[in-house]
Simulated scan of single mutants.
Amino acid sequence: MKFGVVVFPGSNCDADCLHAIKASTGQTVEYIWHKAGSVDGYDCIVLPGGFSYGDYLRCGAVARFSPVMTPVIEFAQKGGLVLGICNGFQILTEAGLLPGALHRNKNLQFICDDTYLRIENNATPFTCQAEVGQVIRVPIAHGEGNYYADPEIIQQLEENKQVIFRYCDPYGEITPAANPNGSVNNIAGICNSKGNVLGMMPHPERCAEAILGNTDGQLIFQSLLQQWLRRCG
C-alpha cells in the first residue's frame, strides 16, 4: 500500500503523519507537494494538520484552491481513500468532499488536550479494526474545531451512519462536558456517503507509538492497511 501526505505551505503535522503511518503500517509513505498535478500511484491520500496558507480567510479556504486539490478531488470521486486530519478536515469541507463546516471553538480559545472518542461505525476503511462503542484516547490541537451543519445535513449524517467519531468521556458516555469545542452532537469525525473520505479533528498521528504513551491512533492507519489487503487479496 502506498500513502501520500500532502504538504501545503503552513502544514506542520506532515512529518508526524508520514512517520506515524510508516511506523503503524510498515508501508510506503511519500510527501506530495501542494503544486503537484497528479496523485497517480497512491492508495490513500492524507491531508495533515497545521495552518495551511496561514489560515487566511478561513481555515482551509485557500488550500482548497491548491493545484494538488484538483487531482485529490478526482481521486476521491473515483473511490480513492482520503483522510483529512484537523486542518485537513477543514480543507475537505471547503473542497466540498465533506458536508458542513468547522468554526471557532465555543470558548473562542485554542485547545490542546487529550480527548476520548467513541467509535460509532466500524464499517469503514478507517475503522474496520475497531468495535462499535470502542473508546480511544486521541489528542486535539485546534482553535476552529467546532463542527456545524444545517439540521437537515446533521440528520442525514446520523441516519446514514456517517458520524464515525464522537467526543465522549472515558466510559463512552456522550455528554456536554466531554465536548471540547461545541461541535453539534459531539461530532469529532465524519465520512462521506461512500465511506472513502474521512475528516476528523483529533490527531491519531500524535498517539501512534508507545514512546508517546499512547498507541490508540494506530487503529486508523492499521484499519486502512487491512482494508486494502482484503481488497487486494
Rank of each mutant, 00 (worst) to 15 (best):
24 S>D: 00
125 P>Y: 02
230 R>W: 02
209 E>R: 12
230 R>Q: 07
181 N>L: 12
16 D>T: 06
150 D>H: 08
143 G>D: 12
136 I>G: 10
144 E>N: 11
183 S>E: 10
96 G>A: 05
70 T>R: 12
87 N>S: 03
204 P>V: 08
28 T>A: 11
141 A>S: 14
170 P>Y: 12
50 G>A: 09
150 D>Y: 03
44 C>Q: 09
168 C>D: 04
116 Y>T: 12
184 V>E: 11
156 Q>A: 15
137 R>G: 02
24 S>L: 03
82 V>C: 06
114 D>Q: 10
83 L>H: 01
16 D>I: 04
5 V>G: 11
47 L>M: 08
77 Q>L: 09
228 W>K: 15
172 G>K: 13
62 V>H: 01
211 I>K: 00
49 G>P: 01
58 R>I: 05
151 P>M: 10
199 G>E: 10
123 A>G: 03
158 E>H: 09
27 Q>W: 13
103 H>P: 02
204 P>M: 02
221 F>T: 01
27 Q>Y: 10
206 R>A: 00
153 I>Q: 06
162 Q>W: 04
78 K>N: 12
161 K>I: 04
193 S>N: 08
223 S>F: 13
169 D>L: 11
73 I>H: 02
170 P>E: 15
37 G>A: 14
185 N>T: 04
180 P>Q: 06
64 R>Q: 08
218 Q>T: 09
7 V>A: 05
6 V>M: 05
104 R>G: 05
141 A>F: 01
215 T>F: 00
222 Q>N: 01
100 G>V: 09
12 N>G: 14
139 P>M: 00
221 F>L: 01
21 I>M: 08
94 E>G: 08
125 P>H: 04
2 K>L: 09
200 M>N: 00
85 I>C: 00
109 Q>Y: 05
176 P>F: 04
59 C>R: 04
12 N>Q: 15
137 R>N: 13
224 L>D: 02
146 N>G: 07
95 A>W: 03
161 K>F: 10
178 A>I: 14
173 E>Y: 09
103 H>K: 09
97 L>Y: 07
186 N>A: 12
199 G>V: 06
25 T>L: 14
225 L>C: 06
166 R>T: 11
